[in-house]
Each structure stands twice: as C-alpha cells, then as structure tokens.
Nucleic acid binder design. Structure first.
Lengths: 136, 136
DNA sequence: CTTGACCCTGTAGTTGCCACAAGGTCTATA
DNA sequence: TATAGACCTTGTGGCAACTACAGGGTCAAG
C-alpha cells in the first residue's frame, strides 16, 4: 500500500508545485529521474513526493536551489552532525538580514523623495530633480 | 565646448555604468542610438551622459528599467503635472515595503528555526525536521 | 470513436545584466 | 614602419528559477 505511484500531475497537486517546475527540477538534477510507464509517463514514489515537498518548503523560506540541494544531501545522512545544516541556514539568514537592511535604507530615501513632492509640474518635481545629474 | 563627445568607454567611466550595460540599454531602447565615427565607434553627447546617469541613479533606487523608461519620458515633458512621477515612485515604494514585510516574516521564521538547533545529529535536527513533510 | 484531459520533448521568454569570441581600430613607442 | 596593447565592434551564451508555449502522443469516459 505504500506503493502508490503518482503521475506528475498528481505529484504536482500533492506538493503544490507546478508540473513544469517538477520537470525543471529533474533537468537540473534536483529531483531524481522517476520511473516511467510503458507510455513514457513519469511515475513518482512517496519518497519522491516527500523530497519535492521538502524543496517547496525550503523555497518558501527563500533558500536557493543550490542550498536546497545541499540540505537534501545532509538530510539523508541521519547520523551526521547537524552543524552543516546550521551553517547553511545561518548564511541564508544573514543574507535575508542584509536585504532587509538594504531595502530599509531604500524605503527611507524613497519616502523622503516622495514626501518632498509639491505636486506641481515636472519642471520643479523633486523626484525628477533628485534623479537628474547636476550639469557639470 | 559643450560639444565634447565621448566614446562608450569614456561614457561608461563618467556614469559608472559598464560599457556592455550601455550597449544593452541601447538594444532594449532605453538609451538612444548614438552618433558613430567613421570607424563605427559610438559617440555620446553630454545629454546622453545625463540620461545614462539618470538611469544609474534610478537603478540604485531599485526602479525597474520599464519604470525608468516611463520616468525618462515624463522628465522630458517639463510642463506636465508631476503626479504621474509620484505614482511611479509610490508604486515602487509600496513594492519595497511589501518586500520588507515578506523578508521580516522570513527572518523571524529562520531565527526561530536556527534557535531551536540542538547541535546534535541530523536525525534530530529541528531545521531538517521543519522542512520535512509529515508522513501521511 | 471521438472528445478532452492528461502526458511527452524541446525551445524560448522573463530581468538586468556579465562574459566571452573573433575581429577591427587607434595610439604610442622602438 | 612595425607592432604591442588598449580600445572598439557584433553576436552569442550564461546566470536564477521558473513559465509558457508548440507540436505531438496517450488514456478514460460516453
């Protein structure tokens, strides 16, 4: 009963990942090549569904496919020290924090700029002015 | 004296934009086709340098090339109401704010996850566990 | 036996560039 | 005058992570 095999469409629905995305994951080696029916249809196992779900969750957390590949390799090695996992996650967190900092600075600049808008003509628009270079 | 024309390399240095990027902007219609020397070298005017600098500043603020194109069109129309500029900038700000919100939620999740790490084996790694689907 | 929903492969588009390759040009120096 | 090296030209392909076809094959229901 654990042998229920899924077509790509069924897998796709179960994992909430587009079928074309699944094929893409296969092409880049993130998902294994599945079994095939006589008619060359892909057939997925429960384990492969679990793998795809893992990928989807990781993507939701913003991990890159490269890092997800690394996480999946680690996940298979149950006896191993989980420090490597920690490193990947911490690196990712650091990147998220950097992006937040960048975007926060950007938000400030944009708010200032928009706040200065006097709603007149382009000729005295502060936004355009801020973007325009000073004539040398 | 206002007639000083620049090669793509000179333009590139002056505006702090890669030469290949300038050619790319030309291809997509963001920069105009410049004059050419007898040897087919591109020659840029001061006005074109100003346009490229405008683009660079706008990119630094995270505007997409499409929006920059729109901003440049508006910027040329000095008598026009600057409301359209305000709309573009405000839309952009809204997107930045959305991204900050998304990333902030992500940061929280990642921090929680990493904080739960007990530094044992993969088998009881909270991070891997959180990513793994519950077996049905 | 046909309709419609599924599946297949392969290719091209998205965004904003960067990195070649293979050639032409220009300038300075030996 | 020859030549080295820095510049310029076009065209192509790559990056991330998909998405959207086109042009076919397959399968189950009515």
């Amino acid at each position: 009963m654990a042998n229920q095999r899924l077509t790509i469409g069924e897998l796709s629905k179960a994992a909430h990942v587009g079928a074309e995305t699944v094929r893409y994951y296969e092409r880049i080696g993130l998902m294994p090549r599945p079994a095939r029916t006589a008619a060359n249809y892909r057939l997925y196992s429960a384990e492969q569904l679990a793998r795809l779900s893992f990928i989807r969750r990781s993507r939701e957390l913003g991990f890159t496919l490269d890092r997800i590949k690394a996480l999946l390799e680690l996940a298979g090695d149950r006896a191993r020290d989980c420090q490597a996992v920690d490193v990947i996650a911490s690196d990712h967190l650091a990147e998220v924090e950097r992006k937040i900092a960048d975007l926060t600075a950007l938000r400030r600049t944009l708010r200032d700029l928009i706040g200065q808008c006097r709603h007149g003509t382009i000729a005295d628009c502060r936004i355009i002015e801020a973007l325009s270079p000073v004539p040398a």
